[in-house]
């Protein structure tokens, strides 16, 4: 393995993402694992396995739990730093995570100009697809494949991730084809995220990150809704961790003895 110069950990609500970068900022190592309900011991175990004497940047909901982090930064800043590597200039980052969706407008240097996030509602997040996928006994990774097969879409309410479950069940019970229902679910999520993005003065190009960015149907629907082309970077789920690693490398702070 190439020598790791810095590590970034994005301890999210759904998954913990770890990234190691070389001095050029390229990803040389990464790891993604689902977040357990006991995050602290899980994080400790992950850190145990990482190379020592390397600066660690931490972010995400569990970022503060990483006591030996060189630096902790907000998810907003980390995502913009990570995305800037691909945008290479001003632009917009749309991140659809497990429980959070965020839209960040960045400038030439990758600094945040403005941002917005979903508030106490999961309907515009990955959880919306997850809960409904579980209800339909379909792996969440397969959802896009079903949606692609649909020849039409059923309108699903985007108001609540919890009530969408029962709505979906009743639609299937009424005889709607599963593919059309799943496509409708994708549309509801995409519209919700698009309206979040449109509440800001977004500037192209748009980069889509977060676990949900791996879903090609969401990407194309967002392009339709926003009437802009969307870039999906390789490893879209790692943007936050990548940003954290870059920030820790940039920070002049001494690495504490670990």
């Amino acid at each position: 393995m190439e020598r790791i110069k810095a590590i970034g950990i994005d301890a999210g609500s759904t998954a913990i993402k770890v990234v190691g970068i070389n001095e050029k900022g390229n990803i040389v190592f990464y790891k993604v694992e689902p977040t357990s309900f006991q995050m602290k011991p899980q994080l400790e175990k992950i850190i145990e396995e990482l190379p020592k004497d390397v600066p660690i940047g931490a972010t995400g909901y569990g970022g503060d739990l990483i006591s030996n982090a060189t630096i902790t930064a907000s998810e907003i800043r980390c995502h913009s730093k990570g995305a800037h590597l691909f945008l290479k200039g001003p632009g917009t980052v749309i991140d659809i995570g497990g429980q959070d969706s965020k839209v960040i407008v960045i400038d030439q240097e990758g600094e945040v100009i403005d941002f917005t996030m979903n508030d106490k509602c999961a309907a515009g997040t990955g959880r919306f697809l997850e809960t409904t996928a579980w209800r339909l006994k379909t792996p969440v990774e397969e959802m896009a494949r079903f949606a692609e097969k649909a020849d039409r879409e059923v309108q699903v309410s985007s108001v609540c991730a919890v009530f969408a479950e029962s709505e979906v069940i009743s639609m299937v019970a009424k005889g709607e084809p599963m593919e059309a229902v799943i496509k409708g679910l994708h549309r509801a999520l995409a519209k919700r995220v698009a309206s979040l993005a449109q509440s800001l003065n977004i500037i192209p190009p748009i980069l889509l990150s977060g676990g949900v960015a791996q879903n090609p149907v969401i990407k194309s629907m967002l392009e339709e809704e926003l009437k802009e082309k969307i870039i999906v970077p390789p490893y879209p789920q790692l943007m936050g961790a990548l940003g954290a690693a870059i920030i820790s490398m940039e920070s002049k702070t001494k690495v504490t003895n670990r």
Binding site: S74, E75, E111, V112, M117, D119, K120
Partner: peptide, 14 residues
């Protein structure tokens, strides 16, 4: 608390 502090953190970095 976590949500509010999360947003404030990003705001404070700007």
């Amino acid at each position: 608390e976590k949500q509010v502090l999360n947003r404030l953190k990003a705001f404070m970095e700007m």
